[in-house]
Design a protein around this nucleic acid. Structure first.
Lengths: 106, 106
DNA sequence: CGTGTAAGGAATTCTGACACG
DNA sequence: CGTGTAAGGAATTCTGACACG
């Protein structure tokens, strides 16, 4: 694990994200409108993105190039996150079982 | 090692750095003037900082609170980087020795 | 649907300078 | 020495809308 998780901190302005991804600001804002990306806002209201967001945008850009619609991308995301949820729930369950019946710690 | 080294990428604007560190933009620019910090510039000339820069600035801020002058901070930095250099040179030397006389790989 | 663009305003950033101490 | 501030300008970002398709 990382001390501060630089990858997730939302600190990058839209102009820099545009340089980093090659997308126009218009596109970046549109993908937010389509619920594909979730920047934070500064006090005044400026969007701030994380490195993880930048990577996701690059991923979106690649899919768009392949003709995948924003709706389909959104659905892929949701299906993936459901899978993740199941995985995590499974891990937690295993943890509980181990806590009661599993090997002794130490 | 990290895939892209998020910590070192210069992507954060001075306003966000100011929020993150609690320093005024004036202070941040002054420390650059004193050669304590080295932001990159965007096409137009806006400063861009890394998370590593942010951490260094927090370090500087703490030292300034203790009354350490920018000149002294600069000297500490230089002394530390000389030590680092010696360490790296030593490691490279050891690497060369191993390459010739050391254990076989595989 | 996905993206471009012109519009107007508000906040951001930049530099060089004067101020205090 | 270290930092605040007012100054003027240039670039940034925001929103809502019209356009095309």
């Amino acid at each position: 694990m990382e001390d501060e998780s630089y990858k997730e901190r939302k600190v990058i302005t839209i102009g820099v994200v545009s340089e980093l991804t090659g997308l126009t600001e218009r596109q970046i804002r549109y993908y937010e409108d389509r619920k594909l990306i979730f920047p934070e806002r500064s006090a005044r209201g400026n969007r701030k993105y994380s490195f993880a967001d930048v990577e996701r945008l690059i991923d979106i850009a690649n899919k768009r190039e392949d003709g995948v619609t924003t709706k389909e991308i959104k659905q892929e995301m949701e299906s993936k996150s459901r899978k993740e949820d199941r995985k995590i729930r499974k891990q937690m369950l295993r943890g509980q079982i181990n806590a009661r019946f599993g090997v002794q710690k130490d």
